[in-house]
Design a binder for these strands. Sequence first.
RNA 1: GCGCCUGUAGCUCAGUGGAAGAGCAGCAGCCUCCUAAGCUGUUUGCCGUAGGUUCAACUCCUAUCAGGCGCACCA
Length: 544
Amino acid sequence: MRLTIKEEIETRLSEVIKETYPEKPIPISQVEPEKNPTYGDLSSNIAFTLSKLLKKSPGEIAERLAKNLSGGIIEKAEALKGFVNMWVSQGRLCCLLPEIEEKKDAFGRSNFGGGKRVLLEFVSANPTGPLHIGHGRGAVYGDVLGNILSASGFLVEREYYVNDTGNQIERLGESVKHRYLELLGEKGKFPEEGYSGEYIADIAKKIKEDYGEGAKDKDAIYFGKISLKILLSDIQKTLSDFSVRFDSFFYESSLYEKGEVEKLLSDLSSAAYKKDGALWLATSKLSDEKDRVLVREDGRPTYYVADLAYHRDKFDRGFSLAINLWGTDHHGYVERIKSGLRFLGYDPKRLDIILYQLVALKRGKELVSMSTRKGEFITLDDVLREVGKDAARFFLLMRKHDAHLEFDLELAKKESSENPVYYVQYLHARCSSILREAETRGVAFIPADKADLLLLQREEEHRLMAKIGLFGDEIKQAAKLYQPHRIPLYLMELAGIFHNYYHHHKVLSENKELSQARLVLINCVKIVAKNGLNLLGISAPEKM
RNA sequence: GCGCCUGUAGCUCAGUGGAAGAGCAGCAGCCUCCUAAGCUGUUUGCCGUAGGUUCAACUCCUAUCAGGCGCACCA
């Protein structure tokens, strides 16, 4: 795959350093895209790092490098206060446009991942109630991370782990059964630690419709299983409304059915010990803070055992890397699972756990409660209905995963015209609009390799091309660091540069050749905007 | 008590050890012209606090304060 402009410059810089100072081994050169246009398109602080090695001042090194850098891909290089500032040549920038036109949807993709198989597990919310905004964050984060990793050459499978066994299902069943019996006129005591949400009664109603009084003598497990099925399909509906895609749903119960849990226990038997009637694993000998129970006093294995079996299954299925996306409230579980994997002989580095901070849902200044047990409960469905998919996704994606996120419903919809999501979508709509207008005016769109792109000499055009040239680097970086939020930020910056250009220069003018060259540029910006929005799972409107 | 995350402009937040940023809000302007969901200009910072490492710290280390989240034979 072709190198990006940034990568070419890095290569060039490394070469120049080698030529300029052949006597020393050089560290890898770092180049950063420059936000401040007076400092060029890209800059490097390499002179500082070389300073000690070469026993020369950064200023002197930067001067010499700058002098030798000019030429070819680098239009101009300047030394300033130890930094090396570089401007990309017009010729190289113009090569970008045919490349974008040719690659279209594939522009920005790379083979960074080298075909590595990755299992991305996310959401995995217990099917005991509807999803809320916190799950929504994990859902879009995972969905977009999956898109980014796929675009970066990883083979990604997205999976939802369904906890369909254990106490919670029993409790869910008890709660539903209680409501069901109520509907049949039987009053009873509400189960302790039961689920009291409105949706429980809805499920009970549905069961009554389907089974009449026939379910009266069934036990809580029976009710639990039916409820779980209903709730899971509701969750799947919500996720699909939210454009969150999964390849597979993995049921915890299948691990028991296939004997994987048993097998895991026997594999761990030599490392386990008995205490207080339970079977323990000495995870504290590794990275965990305390030992963990494998089998309870009453003989039932813990969730932990099934979870270890699940992770072993991931590796057995041929995935070299597992990525888990968990809410930060599960962080105490990280070392537990990693220690367990090590006991099983797996390198814990094959499991990356990304923790995301919880979401505070607000309506204006007021905090909206999100307790599953209480009555007042805003579901992810509610949020979707209220602010729309695009805005909701964008808001949830703008922040990095370890930042607390404040989601203000009022802001997301009331100020919708000044929403960042519309700012970015408008970038795409405006490009489309210009291309439409060109058609009505009869300005023929000619392919990039036929247009005289060297006419694109304006400073704003230079900045715009330099920015779209960075799209691929941005995706790669987002993949490498698991940071989807880079993409919305990039798109906002691109939109800013574009709108600025739009207001300073007419795309369509008397000058036909110039108009046609500019149309090529607009079309390329449109492609980048669309690819970016596609990665985010946000629509790219032709018109707004 | 122990552990993890966060603390940057009025608000919400970016910022791979190297030149303090954006959006919103505020203020002042811009549509006989490809969409004003836009643009231009402008105000605001002991980067929580105190030490330390470094040629260089918002970034790393230690302590401390504040907020959030964890610390089950629940999942």
